[in-house]
Nucleic acid binder design. Sequence first.
RNA 1: GCCGGUGUAGCUCAGGUGGUUAGAGCGACGGUCUCAUAAUCCGUAGGUCGCAGGUUCAACUCCUGCCGCCGGCACCA
Length: 652
Amino acid sequence: MKQGQYYLTTPIYYVNAAPHIGHAYTTIAAETIARLQRMKGLDVVLTSGTDEHGTKVERAAQAQGKTPRAFVDLISNEFRAQWQKLDLRIDRFQRTTSPEHAKLVNELFEACRANGYIYKGSYTGMYAVVSEAFVNDAKPGDVDPETGKPYEEVTEENYFFKLSAFTDRLLALYEENPDFIGPEIRRNEVLAFVKGGLADLSITRTSIKWGIPVEADPSHVFYVWFDALTTYISAVAGEDRWPADLHLIGKEILRFHAVYWPAFLMAAGWPLPKRVFAHGWLLFENDKMSKSRGNIVRPSPIADVMGVDALRYFLLREIVFGQDGSFSFDALVGRYNSDLANGLGNLASRTLSMLAQYRDSTIPEPSSHTAIAHVAETAAASALAYFNASDFSKGLEQVWSIISAADKYIVELAPWKLAKLTDDAAQKLLSETLYTAAEALRIVCVLISPILPKSAQAIWSQLGYTGRVEDEKVGSLKWGGLPGNQKISSIAAVFPRLDVKDTVKKMVELEGAEKSRQAALMGVSPAPDAPSVATTTPVAPIADTISIDDFSKVDLRVGLVKSAEPVKGADKLLHLNVDIGEAEPRTIVAGIALAYKPELLIGRKVVIVANLQPRKLRGLTSQGMIVAASLEGGSPVLASFLEEVPIGARLK
RNA sequence: GCCGGUGUAGCUCAGGUGGUUAGAGCGACGGUCUCAUAAUCCGUAGGUCGCAGGUUCAACUCCUGCCGCCGGCACCA
């Protein structure tokens, strides 16, 4: 890594989902930081990419009758196309399926092994196919609560990474580099997690085919994180850019970046990234966005209707970076109208228009220092400080204080009145006033360029510049930079005011089309539009075919809930007594406490798996399992009957 | 259950180490100007600062308890 360089990354996105606004949020934020660093004069590289291996991908491809390769090519291209459409400049796009990446993963593995941090162990366990993880404590016949699919019993020889050996070194890392993890809340979470002790990680699989082969032992392929995180290095292979200055990620993958990744690198003796920053989630009107809620928003309809800059502005202004934030179409258009149309757009419009009318489209000579100059310089410095700390919303507030001061100043000086006066003093004052307004506008343009690149450039050009505003250096931003005598060019509204209802309607319509297009791409039939009702859009692949005999092994019974109470010390568990026609009601412990109030369950008829091996949970022995629809990321919904059914009836 | 965070005007949020009338932006309402994108500018709008105690001359700001929400861990057959 050379002086004067800056290297940052977005996560590599998993190709089991089509790009949505959450992906766009991370990528936009990263691209904004990249632009900002460039305007500080640094040689910046921003990488993104796609994570393309694993059983989930293999099965999704199979479901579409495609080879994994063809499938991942398709989705990876979709991500790239999306970033292009949003005008996001991604300097390197790395895929986990690229050959140079495979080479590097093996190098990392060998380096760790040479230092004694890799060992071969045998592991037998229940494996959840969909989440691609071994499940601790699961027993044969158990079912994945998230997908309703049985776990698969898997015994395999794995290579393990001695993560346990790194507890102290990781804690020392966080201690010595307080900025390694941001924001503070996330840092504390990681600290608590690591202090709780770390278990070794299985980093290879023999049961998966679609992955990077371990060269030293080709019956193995690398497993998720060992394979994926390494893209941050392979993306800039041969460029002398590693270590990264910043990994920008969503909070859901913090542990992998703040714990596993530095441990892998320490084990190999490779340099560590300097900072990991986890931003918050984008909620849709305060609900989590999820497939099951059907409230996922895609970025391209917004870009089509309102422009990319409107989306960028909203995401970085409305949401405090690092915290969760709420997205809504109304808020988006509201922000646009009040800040961009009425604020910045109108200031540009009135300033340029007056220059055209009163000064023959020519910028007057730079004027002496005014109060506005002071305001602008102070706010600019403050804004840049906030931007540097990735506090975009506060930084933008500072920039807008310049706009507001300029508007106020214009009204006070009333150039339209001065224009009617012919004496020299009035004309001189008019020139000064117009210069001041234009210069304030110029400073605003430079400051917002990383966030609103297109709009900043549009105003910049209207101010008469022929070059690019992004080539300006923010470090040398001083009052008086706008050259006198410069001819402004033709004026056009940069942010036309939008009708809220109309605009939202258009976006929602396009959103529907985009949803269908993506669903087709992913190979799932688009669900009917019912945004407020829970619909399961892309359906998880169907499990392997079983015979009727296999099915008849499962004894499902109608049961009546006699009692229900929370299990002490567990958030999700309810202790139920269910009568299925036997001498005694059964004790059933069910993970439905978040979705159902115990008192509302009493007297309700439910479906029970009656011949499931009993299982001890929180001290109680559960004699069966309650059947419920399991929504990904959502609450379970109990199976029930519309007609009367007798207790103990069997389902078959 | 453990750990952490949080609860301030309709909305989004500011309010180091306690001290005159609790702030900003948006929205709303009234007014003004006319250069401008029915924009700007000015003014107004009265929120028990979650609840209850406590410490103090004085608490939104400290302490205790409770309630609500969010997150991490445990947990989900």
